[in-house]
Amino acid sequence: MSSNIYEGSVPVSVLKDTDVYRHTIAVLVDNEAGVLARVVGLFSGRGYNIESLTVSVVDEDAQLSRINLVTSGTRQIVEQIKAQLGRLVPVHTIKDLTDEGPSVGRELALVKVDGTGEVRVEALRIGDIFRCNVVDSAPDSFVFEVVGTSEKIDAFIGLMKPLGLVEVSRTGVAAIARGAGGMVDDALPKPKATPKRKKATKKVAKKASPKRKSAAKKAPTSSKKKR
């Protein structure tokens, strides 16, 4: 599996139609029974792959949940996936965080390493380099909490393997677009932009403008749901 060259912001122009690429897609859904089964069933029924999937309520009042999913495929397949997600009745909004401008994605992992003596010290040293928290410590084991991109976590786990790695628990990716403005649900009244917010938009737009533009041009697929 190829990893993204630019974290969360891919100049789509560099992609060929046949390139298999990893996309992080955020989906706002109604927080109702079975909605996750619909999404997962869609992926299994149509043979798309899911590399990671997280789901959680993000707005108690509006009863909205957000699903972050990481999948990979050619451009055609990823467009299919988004269109198929868009067909699901309880889906509000879909945003391809990989295609639509820069974004950040983070994962948390709990990594248990058993060992004593030399290896134990080495594990702790590496844990330090990765800015891990030690959330459990016993005479012959550590549980590290590591936060970062999936790649960083992969790397940390790889290094722990020879040092007594016994168990890994990962959350899957939570991702969000950089810059101002939120992924609002089309159906809900839009939050009014305060002057403060506007300023922020400008700032970010300036910083990220070259990347942003190219991505926006090549990927006209908006976050709006079209069916």
Partner: peptide, 18 residues
Amino acid sequence: DIDQSSINKNVIVDIPVV
């Protein structure tokens, strides 16, 4: 097509109209 997911599913088209 009224269904966006039908477009470019089997055959890549030049002009999609949803």
